[in-house]
C-alpha cells in the first residue's frame, strides 16, 4: 500500500453512465490485477474504493459508473485535477487459479479488473475468453478493448439488443479450465452454479478504511472471517457464503 497524489490525465465518458479515468502518479504499489485503490473525493468523508482496470509505472486506470455523489463529482473532473489515493490495496487474482483457458466473466463495470487480468494472463501464454454482460446495447463498453488484446470476447445483453440475448451465464457453454468473475453478486452466484470448475470472484462491501484496520467489510466464508479489503477482494468461489 502506498499513499500519493494523482493527477487526472484523462477522463472519458464511455456511455451515459460509465467513464474511464486515468490518474497519473506513482502506481508502483499496484502489483496484481484485482487490486484496488481508495480515492478521497471532495465533499465525502470516507474514501471510496475503485477496482483498477489497467496500470503502468506512472498511472492507473479505473472504470466507474455514476451512481451517487462521489461518482458524479468524479464524472465531472477535468484534466489536471488532483486526487489523494491509497494504491495497491487488496490481494488480487491468482493468475494460475483459472487454468490455461479461463472464462473472464464481467457484469457491467465489474469487467474493469478483468481487463488488466486478461493482459497478465496473455503474457503468461494463457487463452482467456471474455464474457461481458450488459443490460442493453447502449450500456456496452470495452468490448473493443478486450478484442484488441486478442481475447475472444462474447457480449450478452439482457434485452437482446446486441450480442447474445440473456445473462452472461447463457454464454458459459464453452470449454473452460476455470473462471474469474466480477459483477453484481446475483450474477456471480449464478455463474458459480453454472460450472464445477474452480473460480475466483472479486467481491465488494461497504468499506471504512480499505486496508484492513477497521473490520468494516468483514464477511463470513467457509475458510473463516475475511476482510474484503485486505484478505480479498478476490475470494475463491469455493469459500464464498452467499448472503443473497
Amino acid at each position: 500500500m502506498k499513499q500519493g497524489i494523482f493527477a487526472v490525465a484523462e477522463n472519458t465518458p464511455l456511455n451515459d453512465k460509465v467513464s474511464r479515468l486515468v490518474l497519473r502518479g506513482d502506481a508502483s504499489a499496484l502489483e496484481r490485477p484485482g487490486q484496488f485503490v481508495q480515492l478521497r473525493l471532495p465533499g465525502l468523508y470516507l474514501r471510496r474504493p475503485f477496482s483498477v482496470c489497467d496500470r503502468d509505472a506512472d498511472s492507473f486506470t479505473v472504470l466507474f459508473e455514476t451512481v451517487g455523489k462521489g461518482t458524479e463529482k468524479l464524472r465531472n473532473t477535468k484534466t489536471g485535477d488532483e486526487f489523494d489515493a491509497l494504491t495497491g490495496l487488496g490481494n488480487g487474482f491468482d493468475l494460475n487459479a483459472g487454468g490455461d483457458t479461463p472464462l473472464l466473466i464481467g457484469g457491467g463495470t465489474g469487467l474493469s479488473p478483468l481487463y488488466w487480468l486478461a493482459k497478465e494472463l496473455i503474457m503468461r501464454q494463457k487463452q482467456p475468453i471474455a464474457l461481458l454482460g450488459f443490460n442493453s446495447v447502449s450500456d456496452i463498453f470495452y468490448e473493443a478493448a478486450f478484442r484488441a488484446l486478442g481475447v475472444e470476447t462474447v457480449v450478452t445483453t439482457v434485452d437482446g439488443s446486441y450480442g447474445r440475448k440473456g445473462f452472461v451465464t447463457q454464454a458459459m457453454d464453452r470449454e473452460h479450465t476455470g473462471f474469474y468473475a466480477c459483477g453484481p453478486e446475483a450474477m456471480m452466484k449464478a455463474v458459480c452454479a453454472c460450472t464445477d470448475k474452480p473460480g475466483q470472484l472479486s467481491l465488494d462491501r461497504r468499506m471504512g478504511c480499505g486496508f484492513g484496520a477497521c473490520m468494516g467489510c468483514t464477511v463470513k466464508t467457509k475458510s473463516g472471517l475475511k476482510r474484503i479489503c485486505k484478505d480479498g477482494p478476490v475470494l475463491s468461489s469455493r469459500e464464498v457464503i452467499w448472503e443473497i
Binding site: L44, Y45, L46, R205, R206, M207, G208, C214, M215, G216, C217, T218, V219, K220, L225, E243
Partner: peptide, 14 residues
C-alpha cells in the same frame, strides 16, 4: 464475528 453487513455508512463530516 461481529455484526452482519453493511457495517459502515457515510455521514456529513463523519
Amino acid at each position: 464475528t461481529g455484526n452482519p453487513q453493511p457495517r459502515i455508512a457515510e455521514t456529513n463530516a463523519g
